[in-house]
């Protein structure tokens, strides 16, 4: 790169972004490794080694977060991929209500997560809720969606899918529309049916859309906090507590060292799952 280029594309352009990003994001991330090893009050700290991590793994109310976070991320991610793909296929086909359906599926993406959480927790009310009344009307006994510890996490996950599937669908629509017409023509000449089209053209060739949806939904699921907080606050008991909600609880209680240890654990958890996943997925991607 010559001198003129270097002067023209000066790193001075990068400076404002770098300063903000390094100070507000990278510095705290690095400091979190240190503060997770302390008992900390923001003004004063005391080094206690790995005690915070030991507490996190030993106490049942904290370690349940790992399991819940993982289940939540996997369930929401899988449902978004499957439903998003099917909706993507439906909404790229030649149906007349396509425009309307696209808008409808997409609008929850714009509604505030907290508002969605509150509205759905009302609809999932065990005795008064709309969902149970509808079920009873067709003869299915009422379900305690958010009060049953075995079920609550899945109820929240379903709400998450309701809100987030529009994003997955949009990605799939873009992916499916970028498949060249020739593939469909070849299929037609060979006399393939609709299912073969789905199985042998759409699914493999919208692979990069699938990868995008998986990565975004999975990472988003692992970091998820606001929906869970607005629907159950981690309850009943600790049944829906995920790492992010535990961090908030410890922060509120003033255990800053412990909260920061939670952050480090979440960081490691996300990195250990997301980087290999990303590698595994993109390795198999095909070019159109």
């Amino acid at each position: 790169m010559n001198k003129v280029m270097k002067r023209t594309y000066s790193y001075a352009f990068l400076l404002p972004a770098a300063v903000i990003y390094l100070i507000i994001f990278i510095l705290p991330t690095i400091m979190s490794f240190f503060f997770s090893l302390t008992r900390w009050t923001l003004f004063d700290w005391e080094f206690i080694g790995f005690d915070n991590f030991v507490t996190f793994f030993q106490e049942a109310s904290l370690s349940i977060g790992f399991k819940n976070t993982f289940i939540y991320a996997v369930v929401t991610c899988l449902l978004k991929v499957v439903i998003g793909l099917l909706l993507g296929v439906l909404l790229t086909s030649k149906i007349r209500t396509r425009g309307y359906l696209r808008s409808v599926v997409f609008f929850p993406t714009l509604v505030s997560t907290i508002a969605v959480g509150i509205a759905f927790s009302m609809m999932m009310h065990p005795t008064l809720g709309l969902i149970n009344k509808a079920l009873e009307a067709i003869g299915i006994p009422a379900v305690d969606w958010l009060g049953n510890p075995d079920l609550a996490l899945f109820s929240v996950a379903l709400t998450d899918v309701w809100k987030g599937v529009g994003f997955a669908t949009v990605i799939y629509i873009a992916g499916i529309m970028s498949i060249p017409e020739q593939y469909y023509e070849a299929l037609q000449i060979d006399g393939g049916n609709a299912f073969q089209k789905f199985r042998h053209i759409i699914v493999p060739l919208s692979r990069s859309a699938t990868n995008t949806v998986i990565i975004f939904a999975f990472i988003g699921g692992l970091r998820s906090f606001d929906l869970i907080w607005s629907m159950t606050r981690g309850g009943p008991g600790y049944a829906t507590d995920v790492i992010a909600s535990i961090i908030y609880k410890q922060y509120q209680a003033g255990f800053y060292g412990l909260a920061t240890a939670g952050n480090v654990i979440l960081f490691v958890f996300v990195a250990l799952l997301a980087f290999p996943l990303n590698y595994f997925l993109t390795r198999k991607e095909v070019d159109l």
Binding site: T29, M31, L222, Y248, N263, V270
Partner: peptide, 21 residues
Amino acid sequence: FFVLAGLIIPPAIVPTIWVLD
């Protein structure tokens, strides 16, 4: 790499408060 990391890593809450403070 730093940009990609920012997409994946959750922000460290209390240390960010500490920096802002």
